[in-house]
Design a protein around this nucleic acid. Structure first.
Length: 328
DNA sequence: TAATTATGACGAC
DNA sequence: TCGTCCTAATTAC
C-alpha cells in the first residue's frame, strides 16, 4: 500500500481542492451506493490522515473513512495540484504549462515553497497511490469514470475517483474517534514527545520481533513494508530482536528516524530512504524504485555498505529484507 | 491470454 | 497460520 506518506499527501490534495466545496458523491461501480447517498450534496469540511487511513468530514457530521489497502488508488482530475518533484519523476518538467497547477519545490531536500498556477484549468489527471503518476490530460470535465470506481467525489472544478480500497465506509464522529484510538502514534498527528513516549513504552513491553512491531498499526502508524525494512537497516538493528530487548535509546532513534522519513516522503512524494545522495544518485533514486533503498527489494544483491548479499525472508506473511552482516 | 505480483488488514481456525 | 478481499500493472507463455 501507500504507506503513511502517500495518505498524508492525498489528504493534502483534498484539503487544497475539496475542503470547503459541496460535492456530488456517487458510486459508478455500484458497490457504495448507499454510503454515497448519505454524503451526496454535502460540503467537505476537513481532510485528515492518520497513519494509512484518511478521513473526510462532511457538513452533516458524517465522515468518509478510506483505507487503500495494498493496491487502492485515487485518481484526481481537473483543478488539482502536482508538485515539482512528482512532475520531475514523471519526466514532465517543462510541459507543466498544459497540465494545470504545479507546486514549486526545492528539488534535493524537498521542502515546499510557493504554488504557481499555470496554463489550462481542469485538465490535469493525477493518480495518487504509493507512487504518483501524471496521466495524459483529460479533454472533457468531468471525465467518464474508467474501471471499477468505488466512489467518485465531484466538485465544480475537480474530481476524485477511488478504486480498489480495502475500506471505504461512512462513519459517525464516535466511530471515527474509536478507529483513531486504536491506532499507534502518527508523527504528523501527535506531539513529538508524546508520540515517542507512547511508541517506546509499548515496544518495550513486548516480546514480539521489532520487525513485526514496526508494521503493527496499533504500535506506530503509517509504516509499511518498505519503510519497515529501511528503518531497521538505518538503525543497523536485527529484525528479530524482541521489542523488549531493543535498547531504549535505539527505539527513540527509530521513532525520530520515522518522523524524518515520513516528512521527506510527504514533501517529495517518494520513499527516499537513503540520505545525502549526490545529485546523480538522487536522479537515479527518483527515476527507479530499485535505486531508492538500502535493502528493500534487494534480495541477493550486495549490501550497499558491506557487500554481503541481502536476505529475504517471510515474516508474518510479508517479505522482509535485511543485511545479515550490518544488522547482525 | 494467463499467471504473477504488490508498499494491508481482517477473520476463521 | 491460513484464506480472503479489493484492482491493475507487469511478466510469462
Amino acid at each position: 500500500m501507500p504507506e503513511g506518506h502517500s495518505v498524508h499527501r492525498i489528504a493534502r490534495q483534498f484539503g487544497l481542492h475539496f475542503v470547503g466545496h459541496p460535492v456530488r458523491v456517487s458510486s459508478p461501480q455500484g458497490r457504495f451506493v448507499d454510503g454515497a447517498a448519505r454524503l451526496d450534496g454535502h460540503t467537505i469540511t476537513e481532510a485528515r490522515a492518520v497513519g494509512k487511513q484518511m478521513f473526510l468530514r462532511f457538513d452533516n457530521d458524517l465522515w468518509l473513512r478510506v483505507h487503500l489497502g495494498i493496491y487502492g488508488a485515487w485518481d484526481f482530475a481537473g483543478d488539482i495540484t502536482v508538485d515539482a518533484t512528482v512532475a520531475a519523476a514523471n519526466g514532465r518538467m517543462g510541459q507543466t504549462n498544459q497540465r494545470g497547477t504545479v507546486a514549486d519545490q526545492d528539488g534535493a531536500n524537498g521542502s515546499e515553497s510557493s504554488l504557481s498556477s499555470i496554463g489550462a484549468p481542469r485538465r490535469t489527471r493525477l493518480r495518487m497511490a504509493e507512487q504518483e503518476k501524471l496521466e495524459e490530460p483529460i479533454d472533457v470535465f468531468p471525465p467518464e469514470p474508467i474501471g471499477a470506481v468505488r466512489v467518485r467525489l465531484l466538485t465544480d472544478d475537480a474530481v476524485a475517483d477511488l478504486r480498489g480500497p480495502t475500506a471505504c465506509e461512512v462513519l459517525t464522529p464516535d466511530q471515527v474517534e474509536a478507529t483513531i484510538a486504536k491506532l499507534g502514534p502518527d508523527p504528523l498527528e501527535v506531539d513529538a514527545a508524546e508520540g515517542e513516549e507512547r511508541f517506546v513504552s509499548v515496544v518495550r513491553r513486548k516480546p514480539t520481533p521489532i520487525a513485526l512491531l514496526l508494521m503493527d498499526q496499533g504500535v506506530v502508524s503509517g509504516i509499511g513494508n518498505v519503510y519497515r525494512a529501511e528503518l531497521l537497516f538505518r538503525a543497523r538493528l536485527n529484525p528479530h530482536t524482541p521489542g523488549k530487548l531493543v535498547p531504549e535509546q535505539t527505539l527513540r532513534e527509530l521513532w525520530r528516524d520515522w518522523t524524518r522519513l515520513l516528512a521527506t516522503g510527504v514533501a517529495t512524494g517518494q520513499m527516499l530512504t537513503m540520505d545525502d545522495l549526490d545529485p546523480d544518485d538522487y536522479r537515479k533514486a527518483l527515476a527507479s524504485r530499485d535505486d531508492r533503498h538500502w535493502v528493500y527489494h534487494r534480495a541477493g544483491l550486495p549490501c550497499r555498505v558491506c557487500g554481503t548479499n541481502i536476505v529475504m525472508e517471510e515474516l508474518g506473511g510479508r517479505k522482509l529484507y535485511w543485511c545479515p552482516r550490518d544488522q547482525a
